[in-house]
Design a protein around this nucleic acid. Structure first.
Lengths: 255, 255
DNA sequence: AACTGTCGTTCCGCCAGCCGGAACACCCGG
DNA sequence: CCGGGTGTTCCGGCTGGCGGAACGACAGTT
Protein backbone atom coordinates (compact mmCIF):
# COMPACT_ATOMS: atom_id res chain seq x y z
CA UNK A 1 0.00 0.00 0.00
CA UNK A 2 1.13 3.52 0.84
CA UNK A 3 2.04 6.41 -1.36
CA UNK A 4 5.06 5.90 -3.45
CA UNK A 5 8.64 5.46 -2.54
CA UNK A 6 10.87 2.61 -1.67
CA UNK A 7 10.76 2.80 2.10
CA UNK A 8 11.21 0.38 4.93
CA UNK A 9 7.88 -0.15 6.59
CA UNK A 10 9.43 -1.49 9.76
CA UNK A 11 11.74 1.43 10.21
CA UNK A 12 8.95 3.86 9.42
CA UNK A 13 6.85 2.34 12.19
CA UNK A 14 9.82 2.51 14.47
CA UNK A 15 10.22 6.19 13.75
CA UNK A 16 6.50 6.69 14.25
CA UNK A 17 7.10 5.61 17.82
CA UNK A 18 9.71 8.31 18.29
CA UNK A 19 7.31 10.83 16.81
CA UNK A 20 5.02 10.31 19.76
CA UNK A 21 7.41 11.91 22.14
CA UNK A 22 6.87 15.64 22.29
CA UNK A 23 8.07 18.21 24.77
CA UNK A 24 5.02 18.04 26.98
CA UNK A 25 4.23 14.34 27.07
CA UNK A 26 5.64 12.73 30.16
CA UNK A 27 6.04 9.24 28.80
CA UNK A 28 4.04 6.35 27.46
CA UNK A 29 3.07 2.89 28.45
CA UNK A 30 3.67 0.08 25.99
CA UNK A 31 -0.02 -0.38 25.30
CA UNK A 32 -0.38 3.32 24.70
CA UNK A 33 2.42 3.26 22.16
CA UNK A 34 0.87 0.29 20.40
CA UNK A 35 -2.50 1.97 20.26
CA UNK A 36 -1.25 5.35 19.07
CA UNK A 37 0.99 3.99 16.36
CA UNK A 38 -1.61 1.46 15.35
CA UNK A 39 0.36 -1.74 15.81
CA UNK A 40 0.00 -4.73 18.08
CA UNK A 41 1.44 -4.78 21.55
CA UNK A 42 3.75 -7.53 20.36
CA UNK A 43 5.28 -5.39 17.66
CA UNK A 44 5.47 -2.36 19.90
CA UNK A 45 7.27 -4.45 22.44
CA UNK A 46 9.81 -5.63 19.90
CA UNK A 47 10.51 -2.10 18.70
CA UNK A 48 10.66 -0.60 22.13
CA UNK A 49 13.07 -3.18 23.49
CA UNK A 50 15.26 -2.59 20.47
CA UNK A 51 15.32 1.12 21.20
CA UNK A 52 15.99 0.53 24.89
CA UNK A 53 18.90 -1.73 24.04
CA UNK A 54 20.54 1.22 22.33
CA UNK A 55 19.52 3.90 24.84
CA UNK A 56 17.25 5.65 22.38
CA UNK A 57 14.45 4.93 24.79
CA UNK A 58 14.53 4.15 28.48
CA UNK A 59 12.02 3.10 31.10
CA UNK A 60 11.46 5.42 33.95
CA UNK A 61 12.27 3.20 36.93
CA UNK A 62 9.55 4.53 39.17
CA UNK A 63 6.64 5.13 36.82
CA UNK A 64 7.51 2.37 34.39
CA UNK A 65 6.78 4.66 31.48
CA UNK A 66 8.88 4.71 28.36
CA UNK A 67 10.83 7.91 27.75
CA UNK A 68 13.40 9.14 25.31
CA UNK A 69 16.89 8.01 26.24
CA UNK A 70 20.22 9.73 26.46
CA UNK A 71 21.37 8.42 23.10
CA UNK A 72 19.19 11.02 21.40
CA UNK A 73 21.46 13.72 22.79
CA UNK A 74 24.45 12.23 21.03
CA UNK A 75 22.62 12.30 17.72
CA UNK A 76 21.76 15.95 18.07
CA UNK A 77 25.29 16.82 19.02
CA UNK A 78 26.68 14.97 16.03
CA UNK A 79 24.18 16.66 13.78
CA UNK A 80 25.17 20.11 14.93
CA UNK A 81 28.89 19.44 14.87
CA UNK A 82 28.86 18.05 11.35
CA UNK A 83 26.32 20.41 9.85
CA UNK A 84 27.80 22.17 6.88
CA UNK A 85 25.60 25.17 7.55
CA UNK A 86 26.66 25.53 11.14
CA UNK A 87 30.32 25.09 10.29
CA UNK A 88 30.11 27.55 7.46
CA UNK A 89 28.39 30.32 9.31
CA UNK A 90 30.55 30.25 12.42
CA UNK A 91 33.23 32.61 11.13
CA UNK A 92 30.63 35.14 10.08
CA UNK A 93 28.75 35.03 13.32
CA UNK A 94 31.90 35.09 15.41
CA UNK A 95 33.27 38.02 13.51
CA UNK A 96 30.03 39.91 13.83
CA UNK A 97 29.72 39.15 17.50
CA UNK A 98 33.29 40.23 18.19
CA UNK A 99 33.08 43.41 16.18
CA UNK A 100 29.82 44.63 17.63
CA UNK A 101 30.24 43.18 21.08
CA UNK A 102 26.95 41.35 20.92
CA UNK A 103 25.97 37.72 21.04
CA UNK A 104 24.20 36.21 18.11
CA UNK A 105 22.01 33.12 17.95
CA UNK A 106 21.56 30.89 14.94
CA UNK A 107 18.43 28.78 14.62
CA UNK A 108 17.43 26.15 12.09
CA UNK A 109 13.88 25.57 10.97
CA UNK A 110 12.34 22.13 10.91
CA UNK A 111 8.68 21.44 10.68
CA UNK A 112 6.90 23.70 13.11
CA UNK A 113 9.77 24.79 15.32
CA UNK A 114 13.14 26.47 15.27
CA UNK A 115 16.19 24.89 16.84
CA UNK A 116 18.97 26.95 18.25
CA UNK A 117 22.16 25.39 16.94
CA UNK A 118 24.81 27.95 17.67
CA UNK A 119 25.33 30.79 20.03
CA UNK A 120 28.34 33.01 19.99
CA UNK A 121 28.73 34.78 23.27
CA UNK A 122 29.76 38.37 23.13
CA UNK A 123 33.06 40.13 23.64
CA UNK A 124 34.56 38.01 26.38
CA UNK A 125 36.39 34.94 25.18
CA UNK A 126 33.96 32.42 26.51
CA UNK A 127 33.38 29.02 25.01
CA UNK A 128 31.66 28.75 21.69
CA UNK A 129 28.82 26.54 22.63
CA UNK A 130 26.77 24.64 20.16
CA UNK A 131 23.55 23.28 21.49
CA UNK A 132 20.04 22.49 20.59
CA UNK A 133 17.22 24.43 22.06
CA UNK A 134 13.89 23.91 20.43
CA UNK A 135 10.93 26.16 20.50
CA UNK A 136 7.76 27.06 18.76
CA UNK A 137 7.71 29.86 16.22
CA UNK A 138 5.26 32.56 17.19
CA UNK A 139 7.00 34.10 20.19
CA UNK A 140 10.56 34.25 18.87
CA UNK A 141 12.24 36.74 16.59
CA UNK A 142 13.93 33.87 14.75
CA UNK A 143 10.65 32.02 14.41
CA UNK A 144 8.76 35.02 13.11
CA UNK A 145 11.58 35.85 10.70
CA UNK A 146 11.39 32.34 9.31
CA UNK A 147 7.62 32.42 9.02
CA UNK A 148 7.57 35.81 7.38
CA UNK A 149 9.77 34.70 4.51
CA UNK A 150 8.63 31.17 3.85
CA UNK A 151 6.50 30.31 0.87
CA UNK A 152 2.81 31.02 1.39
CA UNK A 153 1.69 27.40 1.17
CA UNK A 154 4.12 26.23 3.82
CA UNK A 155 3.16 29.16 6.01
CA UNK A 156 -0.52 28.39 5.67
CA UNK A 157 0.13 24.83 6.81
CA UNK A 158 2.06 25.97 9.83
CA UNK A 159 -0.48 28.63 10.73
CA UNK A 160 -3.23 26.04 10.72
CA UNK A 161 -1.29 23.77 13.07
CA UNK A 162 0.22 26.39 15.32
CA UNK A 163 -0.99 26.62 18.89
CA UNK A 164 -0.56 30.24 19.91
CA UNK A 165 0.30 29.49 23.50
CA UNK A 166 1.16 32.48 25.64
CA UNK A 167 4.60 32.65 27.23
CA UNK A 168 4.13 36.16 28.61
CA UNK A 169 1.25 38.61 28.59
CA UNK A 170 2.70 40.12 25.42
CA UNK A 171 2.82 36.90 23.44
CA UNK A 172 0.73 37.13 20.31
CA UNK A 173 -2.23 34.82 20.62
CA UNK A 174 -4.34 36.14 17.76
CA UNK A 175 -3.69 34.87 14.26
CA UNK A 176 -4.69 38.13 12.60
CA UNK A 177 -2.23 40.07 14.73
CA UNK A 178 0.48 37.56 13.92
CA UNK A 179 -0.25 37.84 10.20
CA UNK A 180 0.03 41.60 10.43
CA UNK A 181 3.39 41.35 12.18
CA UNK A 182 4.66 38.94 9.56
CA UNK A 183 3.65 41.38 6.85
CA UNK A 184 5.54 44.12 8.63
CA UNK A 185 8.58 41.85 8.95
CA UNK A 186 8.48 41.13 5.22
CA UNK A 187 8.62 44.85 4.62
CA UNK A 188 11.39 45.56 7.10
CA UNK A 189 13.46 42.51 6.25
CA UNK A 190 13.58 41.39 9.87
CA UNK A 191 11.22 40.35 12.65
CA UNK A 192 10.89 41.56 16.22
CA UNK A 193 10.17 39.97 19.57
CA UNK A 194 8.87 42.45 22.06
CA UNK A 195 9.03 40.62 25.40
CA UNK A 196 6.86 37.91 23.92
CA UNK A 197 8.88 34.97 25.19
CA UNK A 198 10.25 36.37 28.43
CA UNK A 199 9.56 39.62 30.29
CA UNK A 200 12.37 42.09 29.83
CA UNK A 201 13.81 40.33 26.81
CA UNK A 202 13.55 41.80 23.31
CA UNK A 203 15.08 40.56 20.08
CA UNK A 204 15.30 41.00 16.35
CA UNK A 205 15.83 38.24 13.81
CA UNK A 206 16.64 37.98 10.11
CA UNK A 207 15.94 34.98 7.83
CA UNK A 208 18.48 32.60 6.33
CA UNK A 209 17.80 31.22 2.88
CA UNK A 210 18.94 28.11 1.07
CA UNK A 211 21.25 28.95 -1.76
CA UNK A 212 19.86 26.05 -3.72
CA UNK A 213 16.11 26.07 -3.26
CA UNK A 214 15.67 29.66 -2.12
CA UNK A 215 13.55 28.57 0.82
CA UNK A 216 13.92 29.72 4.38
CA UNK A 217 16.08 27.34 6.42
CA UNK A 218 16.53 29.29 9.62
CA UNK A 219 17.36 32.66 11.09
CA UNK A 220 19.97 34.65 12.93
CA UNK A 221 18.82 36.66 15.89
CA UNK A 222 20.09 38.99 18.53
CA UNK A 223 18.41 39.45 21.87
CA UNK A 224 18.93 42.02 24.58
CA UNK A 225 17.61 42.99 27.96
CA UNK A 226 15.24 45.95 27.91
CA UNK A 227 17.53 47.47 30.51
CA UNK A 228 20.34 47.60 27.96
CA UNK A 229 18.56 48.65 24.81
CA UNK A 230 15.08 49.75 23.87
CA UNK A 231 13.49 48.19 20.81
CA UNK A 232 14.06 51.45 18.93
CA UNK A 233 17.76 51.37 19.76
CA UNK A 234 17.99 47.72 18.89
CA UNK A 235 16.51 48.35 15.46
CA UNK A 236 18.50 51.49 14.78
CA UNK A 237 21.84 50.11 15.90
CA UNK A 238 21.77 46.48 14.80
CA UNK A 239 18.89 45.62 12.46
CA UNK A 240 20.70 46.72 9.32
CA UNK A 241 23.78 44.80 10.23
CA UNK A 242 21.85 41.67 11.20
CA UNK A 243 20.07 41.62 7.84
CA UNK A 244 23.40 42.05 6.08
CA UNK A 245 24.87 39.20 8.07
CA UNK A 246 21.96 36.93 7.17
CA UNK A 247 22.34 37.80 3.49
CA UNK A 248 26.07 37.20 3.58
CA UNK A 249 25.60 33.79 5.15
CA UNK A 250 22.80 32.86 2.76
CA UNK A 251 24.99 33.73 -0.19
CA UNK A 252 27.97 31.68 0.88
CA UNK A 253 26.91 28.69 2.94
CA UNK A 254 25.30 25.70 1.30
CA UNK A 255 22.19 23.76 2.35
CA UNK B 1 20.28 -16.46 15.62
CA UNK B 2 21.55 -13.60 17.73
CA UNK B 3 22.08 -13.30 21.45
CA UNK B 4 18.89 -13.27 23.35
CA UNK B 5 16.08 -10.85 23.42
CA UNK B 6 13.02 -10.17 21.39
CA UNK B 7 14.43 -7.59 19.05
CA UNK B 8 13.43 -6.12 15.74
CA UNK B 9 16.28 -6.87 13.41
CA UNK B 10 15.18 -4.28 10.89
CA UNK B 11 15.04 -1.47 13.39
CA UNK B 12 18.36 -2.56 14.88
CA UNK B 13 19.98 -2.29 11.48
CA UNK B 14 18.35 1.06 11.00
CA UNK B 15 19.82 2.28 14.25
CA UNK B 16 23.18 0.85 13.28
CA UNK B 17 23.11 3.34 10.44
CA UNK B 18 22.63 6.22 12.83
CA UNK B 19 25.48 4.89 14.94
CA UNK B 20 27.84 5.60 12.09
CA UNK B 21 27.47 9.30 12.46
CA UNK B 22 29.93 10.69 14.95
CA UNK B 23 31.06 14.20 15.63
CA UNK B 24 34.02 14.11 13.29
CA UNK B 25 32.68 12.21 10.31
CA UNK B 26 31.55 14.57 7.63
CA UNK B 27 28.99 12.35 6.01
CA UNK B 28 28.64 9.09 4.15
CA UNK B 29 27.83 7.85 0.73
CA UNK B 30 25.16 5.20 0.36
CA UNK B 31 27.66 2.52 -0.60
CA UNK B 32 29.76 3.43 2.39
CA UNK B 33 26.80 3.05 4.70
CA UNK B 34 25.93 -0.30 3.19
CA UNK B 35 29.50 -1.52 3.56
CA UNK B 36 29.98 -0.33 7.11
CA UNK B 37 26.71 -1.67 8.44
CA UNK B 38 27.14 -4.87 6.48
CA UNK B 39 23.99 -4.82 4.40
CA UNK B 40 23.27 -4.59 0.70
CA UNK B 41 23.06 -1.29 -1.06
CA UNK B 42 19.41 -2.05 -1.69
CA UNK B 43 18.58 -2.32 1.98
CA UNK B 44 20.70 0.67 2.87
CA UNK B 45 18.84 2.64 0.26
CA UNK B 46 15.49 1.65 1.69
CA UNK B 47 16.51 2.61 5.20
CA UNK B 48 18.15 5.84 4.21
CA UNK B 49 15.23 7.07 2.14
CA UNK B 50 12.96 6.28 5.07
CA UNK B 51 15.13 8.38 7.33
CA UNK B 52 15.29 11.21 4.80
CA UNK B 53 11.52 11.18 4.49
CA UNK B 54 11.33 12.07 8.17
CA UNK B 55 14.29 14.46 8.28
CA UNK B 56 16.36 12.16 10.47
CA UNK B 57 18.86 12.14 7.65
CA UNK B 58 19.42 14.58 4.82
CA UNK B 59 21.59 14.71 1.76
CA UNK B 60 24.08 17.47 1.54
CA UNK B 61 23.08 19.18 -1.71
CA UNK B 62 26.58 19.90 -2.88
CA UNK B 63 28.56 16.87 -1.78
CA UNK B 64 25.68 14.42 -2.08
CA UNK B 65 26.69 12.82 1.21
CA UNK B 66 24.17 11.67 3.75
CA UNK B 67 24.17 13.60 6.99
CA UNK B 68 22.11 13.71 10.14
CA UNK B 69 18.98 15.78 9.69
CA UNK B 70 17.32 18.46 11.75
CA UNK B 71 14.77 16.08 13.19
CA UNK B 72 17.42 14.74 15.54
CA UNK B 73 17.46 18.10 17.29
CA UNK B 74 13.79 17.81 18.12
CA UNK B 75 14.34 14.43 19.70
CA UNK B 76 17.10 15.74 21.93
CA UNK B 77 15.01 18.68 22.97
CA UNK B 78 12.08 16.46 23.85
CA UNK B 79 14.36 14.17 25.78
CA UNK B 80 15.75 16.97 27.88
CA UNK B 81 12.42 18.64 28.47
CA UNK B 82 10.70 15.47 29.62
CA UNK B 83 13.57 13.95 31.55
CA UNK B 84 12.53 13.25 35.11
CA UNK B 85 16.10 13.77 36.27
CA UNK B 86 16.42 17.15 34.64
CA UNK B 87 13.05 18.29 35.90
CA UNK B 88 13.76 17.06 39.37
CA UNK B 89 17.13 18.65 39.79
CA UNK B 90 16.24 22.07 38.47
CA UNK B 91 15.02 23.50 41.77
CA UNK B 92 18.17 22.37 43.53
CA UNK B 93 20.49 23.74 40.92
CA UNK B 94 18.59 26.99 40.60
CA UNK B 95 18.58 27.50 44.32
CA UNK B 96 22.27 26.78 44.58
CA UNK B 97 23.09 29.05 41.68
CA UNK B 98 21.02 31.89 43.08
CA UNK B 99 22.37 31.58 46.60
CA UNK B 100 26.02 31.43 45.65
CA UNK B 101 25.82 33.63 42.62
CA UNK B 102 27.43 31.03 40.40
CA UNK B 103 26.27 29.11 37.38
CA UNK B 104 26.07 25.36 37.55
CA UNK B 105 26.09 22.83 34.74
CA UNK B 106 24.43 19.45 34.78
CA UNK B 107 25.70 16.68 32.53
CA UNK B 108 24.39 13.19 31.85
CA UNK B 109 26.61 10.24 31.10
CA UNK B 110 25.96 7.97 28.16
CA UNK B 111 28.45 5.57 26.74
CA UNK B 112 31.76 7.37 26.40
CA UNK B 113 30.67 10.97 26.68
CA UNK B 114 28.87 13.41 28.91
CA UNK B 115 26.00 15.54 27.66
CA UNK B 116 25.29 18.92 29.11
CA UNK B 117 21.55 18.99 29.69
CA UNK B 118 21.01 21.98 31.90
CA UNK B 119 22.76 25.19 32.72
CA UNK B 120 21.54 27.65 35.23
CA UNK B 121 23.10 31.01 34.64
CA UNK B 122 24.20 32.92 37.66
CA UNK B 123 22.68 35.81 39.59
CA UNK B 124 21.11 37.76 36.75
CA UNK B 125 17.67 36.60 35.74
CA UNK B 126 18.61 35.27 32.35
CA UNK B 127 16.81 32.48 30.60
CA UNK B 128 17.11 28.98 31.94
CA UNK B 129 18.42 27.23 28.92
CA UNK B 130 18.37 23.54 28.49
CA UNK B 131 20.55 22.26 25.76
CA UNK B 132 22.71 19.41 24.74
CA UNK B 133 26.40 19.79 24.44
CA UNK B 134 28.31 16.59 24.09
CA UNK B 135 31.90 15.97 24.81
CA UNK B 136 34.43 13.38 25.63
CA UNK B 137 35.30 12.65 29.22
CA UNK B 138 38.95 13.17 29.93
CA UNK B 139 39.22 16.95 29.72
CA UNK B 140 36.10 17.91 31.66
CA UNK B 141 35.47 18.13 35.37
CA UNK B 142 32.09 16.49 34.89
CA UNK B 143 33.62 13.74 32.77
CA UNK B 144 36.37 13.01 35.24
CA UNK B 145 33.94 13.05 38.14
CA UNK B 146 31.81 10.47 36.35
CA UNK B 147 34.80 8.29 35.50
CA UNK B 148 36.21 8.43 38.98
CA UNK B 149 33.09 7.02 40.56
CA UNK B 150 31.90 4.48 38.04
CA UNK B 151 32.34 0.78 38.63
CA UNK B 152 35.82 -0.51 37.76
CA UNK B 153 34.70 -2.75 34.90
CA UNK B 154 32.84 0.03 33.12
CA UNK B 155 35.77 2.35 33.66
CA UNK B 156 38.19 -0.16 32.23
CA UNK B 157 36.07 -0.43 29.11
CA UNK B 158 35.97 3.29 28.64
CA UNK B 159 39.67 3.72 29.32
CA UNK B 160 40.46 1.20 26.62
CA UNK B 161 38.33 3.03 24.07
CA UNK B 162 39.15 6.58 25.08
CA UNK B 163 41.19 8.69 22.72
CA UNK B 164 43.08 11.16 24.87
CA UNK B 165 42.97 13.98 22.37
CA UNK B 166 44.48 17.25 23.50
CA UNK B 167 42.25 20.32 23.65
CA UNK B 168 44.88 22.54 25.25
CA UNK B 169 48.49 22.00 26.25
CA UNK B 170 47.30 21.04 29.71
CA UNK B 171 44.94 18.31 28.60
CA UNK B 172 45.87 14.97 30.09
CA UNK B 173 47.07 12.67 27.32
CA UNK B 174 48.68 10.00 29.44
CA UNK B 175 46.53 7.21 30.82
CA UNK B 176 48.64 6.78 33.94
CA UNK B 177 48.29 10.47 34.79
CA UNK B 178 44.56 10.27 34.22
CA UNK B 179 44.30 7.23 36.48
CA UNK B 180 46.15 9.10 39.20
CA UNK B 181 43.81 12.06 38.91
CA UNK B 182 40.80 9.81 39.11
CA UNK B 183 42.19 8.25 42.27
CA UNK B 184 42.62 11.70 43.74
CA UNK B 185 39.08 12.60 42.74
CA UNK B 186 37.77 9.49 44.47
CA UNK B 187 39.49 10.64 47.61
CA UNK B 188 38.33 14.24 47.41
CA UNK B 189 34.80 13.46 46.30
CA UNK B 190 35.09 15.75 43.30
CA UNK B 191 37.16 16.14 40.15
CA UNK B 192 39.06 19.12 38.76
CA UNK B 193 39.67 20.57 35.34
CA UNK B 194 42.73 22.75 35.25
CA UNK B 195 42.53 24.57 31.92
CA UNK B 196 42.40 21.20 30.19
CA UNK B 197 39.54 22.02 27.85
CA UNK B 198 40.08 25.73 27.27
CA UNK B 199 42.87 28.08 28.34
CA UNK B 200 41.83 30.24 31.25
CA UNK B 201 38.92 28.03 32.22
CA UNK B 202 38.97 25.90 35.36
CA UNK B 203 36.21 23.79 36.87
CA UNK B 204 35.26 21.31 39.54
CA UNK B 205 32.65 18.58 39.23
CA UNK B 206 30.88 16.15 41.54
CA UNK B 207 29.20 12.86 40.53
CA UNK B 208 25.48 12.11 40.43
CA UNK B 209 24.33 8.61 41.32
CA UNK B 210 21.26 6.60 40.50
CA UNK B 211 19.11 6.07 43.53
CA UNK B 212 18.13 2.69 42.18
CA UNK B 213 21.26 1.06 40.83
CA UNK B 214 23.84 3.15 42.63
CA UNK B 215 25.74 3.74 39.42
CA UNK B 216 27.04 7.07 38.18
CA UNK B 217 24.59 8.73 35.82
CA UNK B 218 26.14 12.17 35.42
CA UNK B 219 27.72 15.07 37.24
CA UNK B 220 27.19 18.64 38.32
CA UNK B 221 30.00 21.06 37.67
CA UNK B 222 30.94 24.64 38.10
CA UNK B 223 33.44 26.44 35.94
CA UNK B 224 35.14 29.78 36.30
CA UNK B 225 37.63 31.97 34.59
CA UNK B 226 41.11 31.90 36.10
CA UNK B 227 40.80 35.67 36.28
CA UNK B 228 37.93 35.31 38.75
CA UNK B 229 39.06 32.45 40.93
CA UNK B 230 42.16 30.37 41.31
CA UNK B 231 41.79 26.62 41.59
CA UNK B 232 42.57 26.84 45.29
CA UNK B 233 39.80 29.38 45.80
CA UNK B 234 37.41 27.36 43.70
CA UNK B 235 38.01 24.32 45.84
CA UNK B 236 37.92 26.14 49.13
CA UNK B 237 34.82 28.17 48.39
CA UNK B 238 32.63 25.82 46.39
CA UNK B 239 33.81 22.21 46.38
CA UNK B 240 32.12 21.29 49.62
CA UNK B 241 28.88 22.80 48.53
CA UNK B 242 29.00 21.21 45.09
CA UNK B 243 29.49 17.76 46.58
CA UNK B 244 26.59 18.39 48.95
CA UNK B 245 24.41 19.48 46.05
CA UNK B 246 25.27 16.35 44.10
CA UNK B 247 24.44 14.16 47.10
CA UNK B 248 21.17 15.94 47.67
CA UNK B 249 20.13 15.48 44.07
CA UNK B 250 21.20 11.84 44.02
CA UNK B 251 19.13 11.17 47.11
CA UNK B 252 15.94 12.73 45.82
CA UNK B 253 15.73 12.46 42.06
CA UNK B 254 14.94 9.17 40.42
CA UNK B 255 16.65 7.52 37.45
C1' DA C 1 -9.40 -13.66 49.33
C1' DA C 2 -11.20 -13.78 45.03
C1' DC C 3 -12.27 -10.87 41.29
C1' DT C 4 -11.11 -7.52 37.60
C1' DG C 5 -8.45 -4.53 35.37
C1' DT C 6 -4.32 -2.99 34.05
C1' DC C 7 0.54 -3.71 32.91
C1' DG C 8 4.63 -6.25 30.19
C1' DT C 9 6.07 -10.58 28.26
C1' DT C 10 6.25 -14.94 25.56
C1' DC C 11 4.71 -18.41 22.18
C1' DC C 12 3.52 -19.59 17.54
C1' DG C 13 1.74 -20.16 12.70
C1' DC C 14 1.10 -17.21 8.65
C1' DC C 15 2.32 -14.39 5.07
C1' DA C 16 3.82 -9.49 4.34
C1' DG C 17 7.81 -7.35 3.22
C1' DC C 18 12.84 -7.42 3.89
C1' DC C 19 16.71 -9.26 1.46
C1' DG C 20 20.51 -9.08 -1.94
C1' DG C 21 21.96 -10.05 -6.81
C1' DA C 22 21.65 -8.06 -10.98
C1' DA C 23 20.60 -4.63 -14.25
C1' DC C 24 19.70 0.16 -14.69
C1' DA C 25 20.69 5.40 -15.38
C1' DC C 26 23.83 8.81 -14.19
C1' DC C 27 28.10 11.61 -13.68
C1' DC C 28 32.99 12.36 -13.85
C1' DG C 29 38.01 11.68 -15.17
C1' DG C 30 40.97 9.34 -18.25
C1' DC D 1 34.68 6.55 -26.04
C1' DC D 2 35.12 3.77 -21.89
C1' DG D 3 35.83 2.35 -16.80
C1' DG D 4 34.69 3.16 -12.13
C1' DG D 5 32.11 5.52 -9.09
C1' DT D 6 27.66 7.04 -7.71
C1' DG D 7 22.16 6.24 -6.60
C1' DT D 8 18.03 3.72 -8.18
C1' DT D 9 14.71 0.05 -9.61
C1' DC D 10 13.13 -4.67 -10.42
C1' DC D 11 12.35 -9.27 -8.86
C1' DG D 12 12.04 -14.08 -6.81
C1' DG D 13 13.27 -16.48 -2.33
C1' DC D 14 12.58 -16.90 2.26
C1' DT D 15 13.51 -14.45 6.57
C1' DG D 16 11.63 -12.29 10.20
C1' DG D 17 7.84 -9.00 11.32
C1' DC D 18 3.04 -9.67 12.42
C1' DG D 19 -0.98 -9.97 15.72
C1' DG D 20 -4.05 -13.14 18.35
C1' DA D 21 -3.97 -15.46 22.41
C1' DA D 22 -2.28 -16.99 26.68
C1' DC D 23 0.61 -16.03 30.71
C1' DG D 24 2.54 -13.93 35.18
C1' DA D 25 2.62 -9.79 38.07
C1' DC D 26 0.85 -6.28 40.23
C1' DA D 27 -2.87 -2.84 42.10
C1' DG D 28 -7.33 -1.46 43.30
C1' DT D 29 -11.96 -2.72 44.29
C1' DT D 30 -15.43 -5.50 46.26
Amino acid sequence: MSGKANISESLAKGLAILDLFGVEDAGFTLSEIAARVGISKTSAHRYVTTYCEQDYLARDPRSGLYRLGVRTLALAQSMIETSELVRGLRPFVDEAAARHGIHIDVALLSRDAVYLVYRRDSADTRVFRSFSYASSLHYLAAGKAAMAFMEPRALAGIMSRLQLTAKTDRTITDKAVLEAELAEARELGYAKNNEESLPGLIAIGAPLFSLRTGEVVGAVSFDSSTATYSMQELERLFAGYLVELAKKISAVVSL
